[in-house]
Design a protein around this nucleic acid. Structure first.
Length: 571
RNA sequence: UGCUCUGUGGUGUAAUUGGCAACACGUCUGACUCUGGAUCAGAAAAGUUCAGGUUCGAGCCCUGACAGAGCAACCA
């Protein structure tokens, strides 16, 4: 049973979500001629965030798993909010996540003509009418969830008049808000969405794709299901809040469909909620517009481009999504699970480097003053194929301040007077004495001796010591500026913040900058230092765009309680 | 007080469709020591919101409560 490789854990039994059960059942029953066809339908009014990743993984994932296809369809029915900037970023982010829609890039606006024809068809069948009332009036007549609505005085207009008015609405003859087209269903329905829903409204702002061709635009409810139908979508996956829309979704398609053997089906699943994370697109937009963050890709943002810049890998995000599953329960997932997913992924592939955040000089008194030798260290203990690198070693090195204590408490296996420790890849050193700053009392320098026989790989290299430290040769060290980012929010859980006061939970822009950070020169150039290294060791968010010469830290940084706990100066 | 949906360890998900409530994250121990917060070993933690019912047997089926969420945009 034991394969001898502890890494080869048994594949965890992947549970089958209720959605998959539905798909499997449909397949078994031969519905849709055995086709599975899904779609991912973002509105291009903002950047994709981690919540969208959950939907993307589902939509594309189900298609992949069941030999089907998944379309990308931009839900661009409201030109007042939408922009090509968002279209481009959405496509980039989906690709980055690892999914592809091939040549099936569609837009709800592709179907404006068909939708318009369908609307006129409904008018002719007395299933739609133009309402001249104000928004307030229509809203009042709608009643409320516990009280039935009343019918509009325009509800029984003639087909001819409705047709004429609807055409003229589209020709731009009427002002925005002056008239709408409504489906004629049931003003007394217990489902608010069935009370003669508005299906077309006048908008005179140019559309990012169709320009000024249209003056009327379909509402979501009038577009989405029909688009699904036009594209041959079999399973239309969306989030829970659309559950009450389903009867309307079905109603339109029933009016539209021409065959009985095919009909798209809407299935709802729970949206992603993360602790300490706000997922509202509108509020994220506000943060960007108000300059509280440095854009959609600010490393603190929960957007995919923010996470990417922060060093998250697509694999880790997919893993995370896989972990949390799809149900109908409104769950709040712990960010620590996301963090676990990155760690697990990065641990296997991130190259390791040495670095010191808060340097403490160590002088190896019996090491020749002018000698320099290269020691060899592995780039990644989890992956031999990444090879080794040479690191210069000399008489004076920096170690992390936290790696030294004047008085070692029990179980402190790092450096303290009289204690021995290995400098990783190099020698075992012993602490003989230390010097304090007379004014501050802070330890300024530690004096050690080394045992030349203990060099890594040598005869006595098998000698055991309890601790191993990262280090950086003083004369080869390079200063680096490191930018640490905290989470976007702190303290309370902004995921639960309904009010506008979520801003007060914002963390500062960046927990700027470590002074005196040292890095070995060979690693200080940007091409050696990619996001993985940063991510890996510190699990800090580091702005790796911000230049060459960054650094890394060793284990002594307290990661466990981290984020803000690291002693850095806030800007 | 209408309609729809949902209640399983701290958190998120399972439970072969009625058969000993399982897994992951987190937490806590211990071990290891060229360090990765990796790996290994172990522990605590729910009797499935509550009350009835059907059944040899219920997390699963039925009834009724209770709790939470969504729905009254010319947003999606």
């Amino acid at each position: 049973m034991n394969t001898g490789n502890p890494r080869e854990k048994e594949e965890p039994k992947t549970s089958v979500s209720f959605i998959e059960q539905i798909i499997q059942e449909d397949l078994r029953e031969g519905k849709n001629n055995g086709r599975v066809h899904t779609r991912f339908p973002p509105e291009p009014n903002g950047y994709l965030h981690i919540g969208h990743a959950k939907a993307i993984c589902l939509d594309f994932g189900m298609a992949q798993k069941y030999g089907g296809k998944c379309n990308l369809r931009f839900d661009d029915t409201n030109p007042t909010k939408e922009d090509v900037e968002y279209v481009d970023s959405i496509k980039e982010d989906i690709h980055w996540l690892g999914f592809d829609w091939e040549n099936r890039e569609f837009y709800a606006s592709d179907y404006f003509g068909k939708l318009f024809d369908f609307a006129t068809d409904l008018i002719k069948r007395k299933l739609a009418y133009v309402d001249d009332q104000t928004a307030e009036m229509i809203s009042r007549q709608k009643g409320n969830p516990s009280q039935p609505g009343e019918e509009s005085p325009f509800r029984n207009r003639s087909v001819e008049e409705n047709l004429d008015l609807f055409y003229r609405m589209n020709e731009g003859e009427f002002d925005e808000g002056s008239r709408v087209l409504r489906a004629r269903i049931d003003m007394t329905s217990p489902n608010m969405h069935m009370r003669d829903p508005i299906i077309y409204r006048i908008i005179k702002i140019p559309h990012h794709r169709t320009g000024t061709k249209w003056n009327v635009y379909p509402m979501y409810d009038f577009a989405h299901g029909q688009c699904d139908y036009f594209e041959g979508i079999t399973h239309s996956l969306c989030t829970l809040e659309f559950e009450v829309h389903r009867p309307l979704y079905d109603w339109f398609i029933d009016q539209l469909k021409s065959s009985d053997d095919y009909k798209p089906r809407q299935i709802e699943f729970n949206r992603l909620n993360l602790t300490y994370t706000m997922m509202s697109k509108r509020k994220l937009l506000e943060l960007v517009q108000e300059g509280n963050v440095n854009g959609w890709d600010d490393p603190r943002m929960p957007t995919l481009c923010g996470l990417r810049r922060r060093g998250y890998t697509p694999e880790s995000i997919r893993k995370f999504v896989d972990l949390i599953g799809y149900t109908k329960v409104e769950a709040i997932n712990d960010v620590s699970l996301l963090e676990h997913a990155v760690r697990e992924d990065l641990n296997l592939r991130a190259p390791r480097v040495f670095g010191v955040l808060n340097p403490l000089k160590v002088v190896i008194t019996n090491y020749p003053e002018d000698k320099v030798e290269n020691v060899e260290v592995v780039n990644n203990p989890e992956d031999e194929s990444t090879g080794t690198r040479q690191v210069p070693f000399s008489r004076e090195v920096y170690i992390e301040q936290d790696d030294f204590m004047e008085v070692a408490p029990p179980k402190f296996f790092r450096l303290a007077p009289g204690m021995e420790v290995r400098l990783k890849g190099a020698y075992i050193i012993k602490c003989e004495s230390f010097r304090k700053n007379e004014d501050t009392g802070a330890v300024e320098e530690v004096h050690c001796t080394y045992d030349p026989a203990t060099r890594s790989g040598g005869h006595l290299s098998e000698k055991k010591v309890k601790g191993t430290l990262h280090w950086v040769s003083v004369q080869h060290a390079v200063d680096a500026e490191v930018r640490l980012y905290d989470r976007l929010f702190s303290h309370e859980d902004p995921a639960g913040q309904k009010e506008e006061d979520y801003r007060k939970f914002l963390n500062p822009g960046s927990l700027k900058v470590l002074t005196g950070c040292k890095v070995e020169p060979s690693l200080a150039s940007a091409k050696h230092l990619d996001k993985f290294q940063f991510q890996r060791l510190g699990y800090f968010c580091i702005d790796y765009d911000s230049a060459p010469g960054h650094l890394v830290f060793n284990r002594t940084v307290q990661l466990k309680d981290t984020w803000a706990k690291v002693s850095v100066e806030r800007k």
